Simulated scan of single mutants.
Amino acid sequence: MNETLRRAMASARLTDRQLAERCGVDIKTVSRWITQPGRVPRARHRWAVCEALGEDEAVLWPTAAKKAIKLGPDREIVSVYPYRSGCPASLWRSLITKAAEQLTFAGYTNYFLWLEQAHFGAALRRKAAQGCRVRFLVGEPDSDLTRSREQDEGVPLTLSTRIRVTLAELEKIKTQPAIEARYSGGHAHLSVFRFDDDMIVTPLLTHRVGHDAPTLHLRRCQGDGLFDRFASHVEELWKNGTPVWEGLAHGQT
């Protein structure tokens, strides 16, 4: 019996069925997590359980946490997902919620965030009010690069339309001084999302849309490692980007 998990569920007042619904699994799967001590859920399910119960993974499954400790140059890689769509929405929500200093969304459109994260704008406004810096890098909707990528993707919901959705949502919350946005074309094939010392990176593939991109969850563990190199890339793009608010003022949306 995994007594730690059982007690955590009791403390959170969640039944087997309720936890199963939160994690997107069958109730029998949750029962096996509890009754079979050696049974360790998949990483995405462990994240969902931790979020639902407000507990740390090392507390609920210490053996899994120990196995996850890496000593080589890949130790900053927390998880790998073949598709961005396979990265749990609960992970994104948890990273956004926990960030205290900065949130940087350097996706070419960032459209999916407004679609998949409930009350995303309100969450950003709340974070900004708490002193967290919120930054968006987006592509220019009318640029040649955007048109070229639209031809490459070949989907009905075009890149320019998705960018304009993000711009319209940002327009609603731009009164917060800690919320900033800039245009950039340097991240057209690489999206980087930073949440303090956590990061999600998605290198885009030819003829594929963002949700089909392979995805890495990184956590900063060293200087000049994977995390810092991607962070430097984003900072360079930000420095050379064009402020969106000026563009909005001139009717460029």
Rank of each mutant, 00 (worst) to 15 (best):
H211N: 05
R135H: 08
A249S: 13
E76L: 06
K98E: 11
G54A: 02
E55Y: 00
V234P: 06
C87M: 12
S94Q: 15
A10K: 14
H187M: 13
H233M: 10
A123N: 08
L91E: 08
A123L: 14
A10M: 10
W61D: 07
R182F: 01
E171T: 12
S184G: 05
Q102W: 02
S79L: 12
A68G: 01
I69C: 09
I34M: 10
E57K: 03
F195M: 00
R229S: 04
K28G: 15
I179S: 03
V59H: 01
L205Q: 05
S79W: 12
A65R: 15
F112R: 09
R194P: 10
V30L: 09
N2D: 02
R44E: 15
T35Y: 14
D196P: 03
T104M: 07
A249V: 01
Y108E: 09
G210L: 09
E235N: 06
S160G: 14
R219C: 06
W114L: 05
D74K: 08
T63L: 11
G251D: 06
L5G: 03
L91G: 05
A178T: 02
R125F: 10
E169Q: 15
K28P: 00
G223K: 12
S11G: 13
H45A: 07
R133M: 09
A65E: 13
D152M: 14
A20I: 06
R46M: 14
T175Y: 13
T242V: 04
L226T: 04
P156L: 06
W245K: 01
H233V: 09
R93V: 08
S31E: 08
R44L: 13
A106N: 06
T161Y: 12
E51W: 13
E246P: 09
K239N: 14
L14W: 01
W61R: 09
E21A: 14
C132Y: 00
L19H: 07
N110D: 03
W33Q: 05
D224I: 00
A12Q: 04
R208M: 13
H211K: 07
V59A: 12
T104Q: 12
D152Y: 09
I179V: 05
M199I: 05
C23M: 10
Y81F: 05
Q252L: 11
G107A: 07
R6P: 04
H189C: 11
F112P: 00
Q130E: 15
D198Q: 15
A128S: 02
L226E: 02
